[in-house]
Design a protein around this nucleic acid. Structure first.
Lengths: 102, 102
DNA sequence: ACAACGCATAGATGTATGTCAATATGTTTG
DNA sequence: CAAACATATTGACATACATCTATGCGTTGT
């Protein structure tokens, strides 16, 4: 997993409006128009955020006629959690604990 | 947990160089000069990233004389993991599964 | 086919951010 | 105290990004 991909994934959680969108989707699948009602942004801005959320894998989109339905991707969420865990897990077979001073 | 705070925490994982720094710190505490050697950035740029990492709570700094030692904060990492889990956990006591169409 | 509707894309704009050079701050040592 | 060193801060600058208006594209219904 290269750094660019990791950054892409966690970009989903780096904007206040995107976090609000994710929180709304916890209640189940919602269509774009519904999300738009509850966010104080224009329709193109919402579309922009949904693209970032889908690219990150955290959110999945489903087209149904002219409507776009969005939901949290359990698979994407698990992937993010796994990466976070792997990134922050300190290894115990450590090499040099410190440097410079001692 | 408000959206601004969440965004602040996950900003730690939204830059390639910061992810590289976190990966280095998995091997244990490292001082700034050591990190600087392995990253192709200037010292002020590293300092900038370390501030963001410390503000997010993911990394902890420890000053020892003129050296600054950085390490992954187990507490901060757990907090981030918990927030990620809470954000992406779909609730089962759901209200309206969809809208607009049906 | 045409009008209405939902969403995506393009272009413009202000703000945030990553980066560097220069400088300041704080610490150790002669 | 002065010099050397490690890190932080400041200011400048280019790029990235969030946002808007205007427009395009696919779908639905008349």
């Amino acid at each position: 997993m290269d750094e660019k991909t990791v950054a892409l994934i966690f970009k989903a959680f780096c904007d206040e409006n995107r976090i609000r969108i994710i929180k709304m989707l916890r209640n189940g699948e919602k269509c774009a128009c519904k999300l738009l009602e509850e966010l104080n942004v224009t329709q193109p801005t919402l579309s922009h955020h949904m693209k970032i959320l889908c690219d990150s894998g955290i959110v999945a989109g489903r087209k149904e006629g002219k409507w776009m339905h969005y939901s949290i991707s359990a698979q994407g969420a698990k992937a993010a959690a796994d990466i976070l865990k792997e990134l922050t897990a300190v290894r115990n077979g450590c090499e040099n604990k410190s440097c410079c001073g001692d």
